[in-house]
Write a protein that binds this DNA or RNA. Structure first.
Lengths: 229, 229
DNA sequence: TATTATTGTAACATTGTGCTACAATAATAA
DNA sequence: TTATTATTGTAGCACAATGTTACAATAATA
């Protein structure tokens, strides 16, 4: 049986979310294997690559209109390990017929996505027990070169953070300056100076200031902000 | 006949050189078609993607150890135009047997390279009349989405230029500050301020100053510089 | 009404960059 | 030998961006 997918071509997505404390990504666990991997998928013969990735993200998160960026394509021979896919299929008691194409060599076009953690109920796929959030600092061991993919995603995200002011994609529509700063600190893994951060973001002319948020705490209430579109 | 290459996967390379006047890239012209394209190629079944690209660069330029960076993978359906490859093969009076795989859909992993213009005698491949330098501002019409690929390469190069100080790869081992500035101006397509440029590059602590270069002109002789390794 | 914690912003120091000016100098002309 | 010319290396000043400290404003509580 022929696959409807383009042979040899896969994508993997590093889906970032922010819990309020830590920067996390979505990781899938395959049935009965203890094997962890990035959510990924394949491209239909009659489908754009980017469309395929958006389709996969929708299936995994339920969200459309996600901030998404392609960052690297991994094509080393070392990522060709048919025994890994074989073990996953066996553990799923899958009939191998029709799945031979999965045992081929693949290159992985990799993307990272930034989403609002609270908007998502992660959905495992047919081969997986779970699709769950893991702090980037406490990831389980991942199959193939997926750890390298995560590292490169994080590196690219950090480089792009200032240039594109994309941190807000990890927060709800409205947020306080303190919350935004915490996101930046989690991504960059450094402390930032409150005053300079606030001044820089306000000077960037990309924020809209809304009403204050009263939390009931015994101190001045912070303004809420949102990004201009 | 089976191809020894990974089906559906191609690479294209945007090879930048600097003539002393203008920023140029290598473009191939296919026999008897008036069709122009980026140098590219395919990946052997038992070869790393990056290795394949380096192999292709060596064939086209004769150089090893080239500054090379992957910047994007193009996977739109719109780049699937079998009639283009068909026309190229026909013009070469090729027997189609054994070349059917070329008429398939491909995604293109794209790289840019920076090389020393003077070191290279560009080599056409079997299907091409010529492999020649064209100023990026005066490119012929290119097949498929190759113009888009060039545009994205240039955009990425500009973004990376400051961060990585890679401009020197377009020059001989030793160069004057004036030559380096001209390269930067050609890439960025803007005039830079001599004084600020010199101060910034010297402060970057990445240059070694050598002896002066005496050109016989009636003015102060400039120092030669090279980049630290 | 005083206290507490946090926020918004001013103020100053430091660094980076745009811009101008000028002395140094390699060859040529007088 | 000396003046001239074009270009180079660098200093100096203005202005912008950022690091750092300080402080007034304020929402709730004691």
């Amino acid at each position: 049986m022929e696959s409807k997918f383009l042979p040899h071509i896969a994508y993997d997505s590093v889906i970032f979310g922010f819990s309020g404390e830590a920067l996390k990504i979505l990781i899938m666990e395959y049935h009965n294997t203890g094997m962890f991997a990035l959510p990924g998928g394949f491209v239909y013969q009659d489908e754009d690559l980017n469309t395929a990735v958006k389709r996969g993200l929708r299936e995994r998160t339920g969200l459309d209109d996600i901030y998404l960026e392609q960052f690297y394509t991994f094509g080393d021979l070392a990522r060709f390990q048919p025994e890994v896919m074989e073990r996953i299929l066996r553990a799923n008691e899958q009939d191998f017929a029709g799945w031979e194409w999965l045992m081929d060599r693949f290159i992985s076009v990799s993307y990272y996505a930034l989403i609002n953690y609270r908007d998502v109920v992660p959905q495992p796929d047919a081969l997986s027990d779970s699709c769950d959030w893991y702090p980037v600092k406490e990831l389980p061991e991942l199959i193939l070169d997926h750890s390298k993919i995560v590292a490169k995603a994080l590196e690219t995200l950090r480089l792009n953070l200032d240039r594109k002011l994309i941190g807000g994609n990890l927060l709800p529509e409205q947020f306080t300056m303190q919350e935004l700063q915490t996101v930046y600190e989690a991504i960059l893994d450094t402390k930032l100076h409150r005053s300079a951060f606030q001044r820089k973001l306000l000077a960037s002319d990309q924020l809209i200031r809304h009403e204050k948020r009263f939390t009931g705490k015994a101190h001045k209430a912070p303004y809420l902000y949102s990004f201009k579109r």
